[in-house]
Simulated assay, not measured.
Amino acid sequence: MANAQKVKEVILAVGQVIEEKKLFLTQLDAAIGDGDHGLNMAKGFGAAKEKLEASEMATPSDVMKAVGMALISKVGGAAGPLYGTAFMNAGKAVAGKEDITLEDFQAMLEAGLDGVKARGKATVGEKTMVDALEPALEALKAAISNGSSTREALDAAVEAAGKGVEYTKTIIATKGRASYLGERSIGHEDPGAMSSYVILQTIADQF
């Protein structure tokens, strides 16, 4: 599916899309949060780009760990530790492998999600990025077990993540600053769920 160079290219593509959507993501966050999610994410992926372009990465794991460290150091608020942990965990899941398969990507997504849930103490239904990531993982698992192609499996994951984002509109936020709004948070997508969806969609578009 991908070697270190391909993973690097995918991450750079993700960074480009985050940059293009930073104001959109920030507007979503302004409605229920601090109003800086998109700007912070763009800053983090900008730092990741600098790190990836400055040195050679031998394995996909090296790429993911470098991205994770950049996100932790440069992204403010809750998103930095959460996304940073996700990427670091994803890298650990494929440590030592020069090429990763679709099954490896499932392991990476699962490890990343586990890291987010542990770090943020979040579960499905709390209006967070978990509401996009967990359905995506379940859809990916189902597609792989059904023998779907890489394209079909990734598309299924993205579709499930998109439905997860829509689901966040219908529920009350119980985590972070958005939780202060109570029922007024209903009707708004969670910006973290949306950025997770954007990242997964961009990854899928590269294959």
Rank of each mutant, 00 (worst) to 15 (best):
A139E: 03
A156N: 10
G80L: 07
E166V: 11
A111T: 01
G162A: 03
K97W: 06
E126G: 00
M129W: 07
E110K: 15
Y167F: 15
E134S: 05
M129P: 10
A122H: 03
N146K: 13
I171S: 03
K175C: 09
E98V: 11
T174P: 04
G164T: 09
G147P: 11
A111Q: 10
K163D: 05
A79C: 02
E103L: 15
P135H: 06
E110W: 14
E159F: 08
S145A: 14
E189G: 00
A90S: 15
K169R: 14
A142E: 14
M129G: 04
D131T: 04
E166M: 11
S148E: 02
E103T: 12
T168W: 02
T150F: 08
A79T: 06
G96D: 07
M108Q: 11
A118I: 15
G164M: 09
E189F: 08
G91H: 04
D99Y: 01
I172H: 03
E103K: 15
L140F: 06
S179D: 13
E103C: 10
S148G: 09
A132H: 04
A178K: 08
D104M: 00
D155T: 08
N89R: 15
V116D: 02
G112H: 11
M88V: 15
G120C: 10
S185L: 13
L109R: 03
V75A: 03
G120S: 04
D114V: 14
P135T: 06
R151T: 15
A95D: 15
L137Q: 03
V116E: 13
D155G: 05
A161T: 08
L137Y: 02
E110A: 15
N89M: 14
L82W: 06
G115H: 08
K169W: 07
K97E: 04
G96I: 06
S149H: 14
G112M: 01
K175P: 13
L102C: 03
A78V: 07
K169L: 13
L109D: 12
T150D: 12
N146P: 04
K127I: 08
A156T: 06
E183D: 14
K175S: 07
K169E: 14
L133M: 04
A86G: 06
I186M: 00
G182C: 13
A136K: 00
G91M: 01
S148Y: 06
A173E: 08
A95V: 07
G96A: 03
P81K: 13
A78I: 01
A173C: 01
L102S: 00
G84V: 11
G84C: 06
T101G: 00
S148I: 06
T174Y: 11
A122S: 08
A122D: 07
K163I: 10
E110H: 09
A161M: 04
G162H: 05
T168P: 04
S185I: 07
S185H: 04
K175F: 12
G112Q: 08
A160R: 00
E166A: 13
L82H: 00
A143L: 10
I100L: 12
E126N: 01
K117C: 09
V130R: 00
E166D: 14
G91D: 05
P135N: 00
H188L: 13
D104F: 06
A173T: 07
L109T: 09
E183Y: 03
N89H: 13
G112V: 05
L154Q: 00
D155C: 02
A118D: 15
G76W: 11
E134K: 12
K163M: 06
